[in-house]
Design a protein around this nucleic acid. Structure first.
Lengths: 233, 233
DNA sequence: CAGTGGTCTAGACCACGAG
DNA sequence: TCGTGGTCTAGACCACTGC
């Protein structure tokens, strides 16, 4: 109908997408095989495969061997968040970055974290609290636990020169992690650090990263008032 | 070194990943061409391409034509959020779902939204407020604007039977959207709807979806106290 | 068991963009 | 301009899993 979609995989994806959006293929319905579509479009099966795989990645179709490809009943919305090192996030906003190490101690893990951060209960962990600034105004407050067994040189690093955030990204590769976002209400101490009124609603992020089965670091980052996390879908 | 990675694209990805993590290839450094790697691993270039494309998708390497492939300086952490229809989100938690339509009006767009939702200033928009319940307890409060020119049948739908959230997912395909997360402090009205104390910090999400250049709907969803958005990386 | 998607290959041409 | 990644092809074998 349109002037022409070439036989590129993106072109084929658009055609398939239109058929789904136009209800030519209804939710839950099985669509033709890769081989049939390849023949229809006059292209190789691999090209159709690439298009369908992309639609599957974005959740619009469900693919199973033997059972074929079906249009998803309620396509979930998938959004990709990109979480940068704080310094880069701030500098990308055109503001100047600085951080200040507020505290550093070594002690065993407090019981509250035992569930989320499985290390030996008597092994000393490194605890850091850091304040991140953008244009000399507080940007985020960070509370971090580092497992010295996983980040071998951490004990000897001067985290007032390079933030733990940045050092870990460059020196402690992780295999996977957990991420959570939630709101917190500024208590007396937080409101002071982040220069806001007590009771202000703040955006917080918690993250644990792992190297296989070994936890590397656990961090809670609380952003100053007005912070919004944005993305596209 | 390991017993053997087969010549699968995932196997090759693991080998490349290890070289990056072990600093065999340093951040910023250019790595061998696809052709060279294909020869080294004794596989087709397409297989190496698939592995490298996957690493590029997750932000670990940067690929440019002619310039080759380089290890990223500070690999951003990319997380994928899956945002389901609220009913499914609640039911996935093993709780029973119900919603209640609190209000429905038609009026032109208020000035506050003119920037985010570009429709004719005198065209009536459909405004809905909805409360979502999980196990009969408030789960989320929703304020929504629907552009009737983009969602043609919306005016004739009984949104007390099917939530606008769900109806739109099934009936108004979108091409793209904007998404933002931020905290709000419960005011008197919100705290009443969501059955929480005034001043509680709550998690909020704002989303606008588009069909090409035409805005379809704008929604602000505020979740009850205790809500956490989780994902993995 | 057999149909369907998942993957690999060897080769080719193309498009971008750094030098 | 020309090296590098991006893509397409035709064909093959494999792995999973529903029938």
């Amino acid at each position: 109908m349109a002037l022409s979609e070439t036989n590129s995989w993106t072109g084929i994806r658009e055609i398939l997408l239109r058929r789904i959006n136009d209800r030519e293929w209804s939710p839950g319905e099985q669509i033709p095989h890769e081989a049939a579509l390849a023949e229809e479009f006059g292209c190789a099966r691999a090209t159709v495969n690439r298009a369908l795989r992309d639609l599957a990645d974005s959740g619009l179709v469900i693919r199973k061997r033997r059972a074929g490809t079906r249009v998803a009943q309620s396509p979930p919305q998938r959004a990709t968040l990109t979480i940068q090192v704080i310094r880069e996030e701030v500098e990308a906003l055109g503001r100047s970055y600085r951080h200040s190490l507020l505290g550093r101690t070594e002690k065993p893990l407090p019981p509250a974290l035992h569930g989320a951060f499985p290390v030996a209960p008597d092994a000393d962990q490194l605890f850091l609290t850091t304040l991140h600034f953008a244009d000399e105004r507080p940007y985020a407050y960070e509370e971090r636990t580092i497992n010295p067994d996983a980040a071998l040189d951490a004990r000897s690093v001067d985290f007032s020169k390079i933030s733990a955030n940045e050092w870990l990204v460059h020196n402690a590769p992780y295999s996977h992690g957990d991420l959570a976002f939630f709101p917190v209400s500024a208590d007396e101490r937080l409101s002071q650090k982040l220069d806001t009124a007590p009771g202000t609603a703040l955006f917080a992020m918690e993250r644990t990263t792992w190297a296989g089965e070994t936890p590397i670091t656990h961090v809670r980052m609380i952003f100053a008032a007005g912070y919004r996390m944005r993305t596209g879908i």
